[in-house]
């Protein structure tokens, strides 16, 4: 069990890479160049791991949305049906977005608090890619990217954290402020511009130039460490101040998830967040992957599970049914 189980949800490292001389995706209109980029990417995947390759143009809106909900592609790539593509490793722990803002965005993810692991896997792919294409790189500015905010290492190291206690107490605001002073950023679950739904935040480096990859990883790790300790402390405070009222709130949320027959995404997220807190407090036992359950119950993923198109009302019913079943199966229970 990890030290910050119940707080850290996942760690992710993204490397932005481009081929020297070929215009960046937004400026590229040459079909041949597109296929060169795609083919080189896929060739690397062949050398690295079992994978699936999807061109956005060949996927339905639901399929694209489902991959986005699973954090494997960005919203921008999901709508790029002109030349967007993605390579997804079969274990879904690595994906390479092709022709997003840059030619390649290699991202590796794990479910623990281990940025180094994510970096080394992204890096392995990067090295193979460098063996197949001439990457755009200058000694002074590092890897050359479409947006100057990604120059240098081209790296963004981010950790997704679940911070209900700091959110309830309002202390999260001053924490976000201090984090920003350290040239780090705090975003919502689905990246730039998204809300911190489900008391979940992504902490990542803002600056990508002038620091080594190791320094970036160490900085983010150090800050996340401090934030997690603050959350642990705040959870203790919350328990001692709110006491039985908090327990009541958590168990009512659990009651909703195990008994409801109609469940919206928002209600699921709210209740599941409280249940997660209840699991951390030892009030609720659930051996399954609750974060995975939340993702499976997002609209497009739910439709995929149902195997047929469902409208919003039908989804709410099917979502409630899915959650009831999964919680029952995962030995969920009132401890």
């Amino acid at each position: 069990m990890d030290k910050y189980d119940g707080i850290v949800i996942s760690s992710r490292v993204r490397l932005a890479r481009n081929v020297e001389g070929i215009p960046f995706p937004k400026k590229l209109n040459d079909e041949r160049a597109f296929s060169t980029i795609m083919k080189a990417g896929e060739d690397c995947a062949k050398d690295c791991f079992p994978y699936k390759f999807y061109q956005m143009a060949h996927l339905s809106t639901i399929d694209r949305q489902a991959i986005f909900e699973r954090h494997l592609i960005s919203r921008e790539l999901a709508v790029n049906t002109k030349n967007g593509a993605v390579i997804i490793s079969d274990s879904e722990d690595l994906s390479v977005m092709i022709n997003e803002e840059d030619h390649y965005r290699i991202q590796a993810i794990n479910k623990g608090f281990d940025l180094q692991d994510a970096y080394s896997r992204a890096s392995d792919f990067d090295n193979v890619l460098a063996g197949r294409v001439k990457l755009a790189y200058s000694d002074k500015l590092g890897y050359l990217t479409s947006c100057p905010t990604n120059l240098g290492t081209g790296m963004r190291a981010s950790v997704m954290v679940f911070l209900p206690a700091l959110t309830f107490s309002g202390k999260i605001n001053s924490i976000i402020n201090s984090i920003q002073q350290l040239s780090l950023t705090v975003r919502g679950v689905y990246g730039e511009g998204s809300k911190a739904e489900g008391y979940t935040y992504q902490i990542s480096n803002q600056v990508s130039l002038g620091q080594t990859e190791k320094e970036i990883i160490d900085n983010v790790t150090k800050v996340v460490d401090v934030v997690c300790e603050a959350e642990i402390e705040e959870r203790k405070n919350l328990q001692s101040i709110e006491g039985v009222r908090l327990t009541d709130k958590i168990m009512r949320a659990y009651g909703t998830l195990t008994n409801a027959y109609v469940l919206s995404t928002a209600e699921l997220l709210e209740c599941a967040s409280l249940v997660k807190l209840g699991m951390a407090f030892g009030l609720v036992r659930f051996d399954g992957d609750i974060n995975g359950l939340i993702i499976s119950c997002q609209p497009a993923n739910l439709i995929k599970i149902a195997g047929k198109n469902l409208n919003a009302d039908e989804r709410d019913v099917f979502r409630a049914e899915t959650v009831r079943k999964v919680l029952k199966k995962g030995n969920g229970g009132n401890v």
């Binding site: 590092g142 905010t149 240098g152 002038g210």
Partner: peptide, 19 residues
């Protein structure tokens, strides 16, 4: 934006996988 103009991170280190 970045606070510096000096890249200190790694350079491309190509690996050619043998099949």
């Amino acid at each position: 934006v970045q606070g510096t103009l000096n890249h200190v991170g790694r350079a491309p280190s190509p690996v050619v996988k043998e099949r």
